[in-house]
């Protein structure tokens, strides 16, 4: 079954998503190119407001068409999702694309039993009988590591802990064995021990279903633990893309390097933690020229940035936006002598 599927089944080409603010459209996601293969976890990393969740909901087709303008192409197993109408999209949502949401506390309907909420997705995409659906619910609950499936199936969301609720959401997302699972910050609302368990569940499911997973997170620790490939997003653009090894061992873009440097590590536990200055520009104030990250690294001369930064292949499909990475250094390194940290 797996062999017959094309290896690269999701191809996002030049996708931009613009929101209408006071009658004008502003890009929240601009010209994103990405592809996802079976059996791989692609992590999309970036700080809050960089457009990663918008990209996820764009793939899911969850935007209000009257408030957003989406361009480009999302090729999913040969179908351009962006050309589908609501009815056509519903054939994909839940069936071929499953989504796991950030906040398990509010993502479940408080008035419906767990069983009904999981069965709902099967009602729309399969011809299973009530009994078959029930059996599948129990199977799913077992798969996501729920201790007492029969009892839990009969309960309401408020009777479950946050970690259990997130497992339920995962169960809903995988109920119809989708090829693509989009996990939007699946562990952000959970404490650390539960995070690890949830990530384990995700990895197991990926192996079992040969699904491709897009894991959206701002937590580099989670990325390091799970991702095969990583795309770093900043201000709506992808600024660096490569395998997890490439990103963690040879980060190029100033933003990637700043992110990694602001992560506490054992080697530098006595140093002061690096903090990226400023914040992501709002949609209306997005710089039109130069690297969008430039205002946050003011010590780098403007001449180091390209006027319209492009993606450059620095070897083995390791893509970096803008050429400024060649001249980038951290401010404190000037005092001690520039470039003493090798990369």
């Amino acid at each position: 079954m797996v062999e017959t599927k094309s290896d690269q089944f999701l191809n996002i080409k030049n996708v931009s998503t613009a929101f209408k603010i006071n009658g004008q459209y502003y890009d929240a996601v601009s010209n994103v190119n990405l592809e996802v293969k079976h059996d791989e976890i692609l992590a999309i990393v970036g700080e809050s407001g960089c457009g990663k969740s918008t990209l996820a909901t764009t793939i899911m087709g969850l935007h209000d068409p009257e408030e957003t303008k989406i361009s480009g192409e999302i090729d999913f197993e040969g179908t351009d999702l962006l050309k589908l109408d609501e009815k056509g999209y519903n054939q994909f949502r839940g069936a071929k694309i499953g989504m796991i949401f950030q906040d398990p506390l509010s993502a479940l309907n408080p008035l419906k039993r767990i069983e009904d909420q999981i069965q709902e997705v099967m009602i729309y995409h399969t011809k299973m009988t009530e009994q078959q659906r029930h059996a599948r619910v129990i199977e799913l609950l077992n798969q996501v590591g729920i201790e007492d499936p029969e009892r839990t199936a009969h309960q309401f969301p408020h009777q479950l802990s946050g970690g259990m609720r997130q497992r339920i959401i995962i169960a809903i997302a995988i109920a119809c064995k989708p090829d693509l699972i989009i996990a939007d910050e699946p562990t952000t609302a959970l404490d650390v021990t539960i995070q690890a368990q949830i990530l384990d569940v995700l990895r197991d499911i990926q192996k079992e279903n040969h699904a491709g997973i897009i894991l959206i997170t701002h937590d580099l620790g989670v990325v390091a633990e799970t991702a095969d490939r990583v795309a770093v997003m900043y201000a709506g653009q992808i600024v660096e893309q490569g395998t997890a090894a490439q990103i963690f061992n040879e980060p190029k873009h100033p933003y990637t390097r700043s992110l990694l440097r602001s992560m506490p590590q054992r080697e530098n536990e006595n140093d002061e933690l690096y903090v990226i200055q400023g914040m992501v520009p709002s949609l209306q104030k997005m710089p039109k020229q130069g690297d969008r990250f430039a205002p946050r690294i003011p010590w780098i001369p403007a001449s180091a940035h390209e006027a319209q930064p492009k993606m450059h292949d620095v070897g083995d499909n390791h893509l970096v936006r803008c050429t400024c990475y060649k001249n980038f250094y951290f401010p404190d390194q000037v005092k001690e002598g520039a470039g003493h940290e090798s990369n």
Binding site: L62, F92, N109, L111, K112, V121
Partner: peptide
Amino acid sequence: DYVRTARSKGVPMKDIYRHHIFRN
């Protein structure tokens, strides 16, 4: 969020109104 979850299940909006929105 739970309506968004329902939409991501592929439930048509008409049914979401009936099963999720109205009762809640």
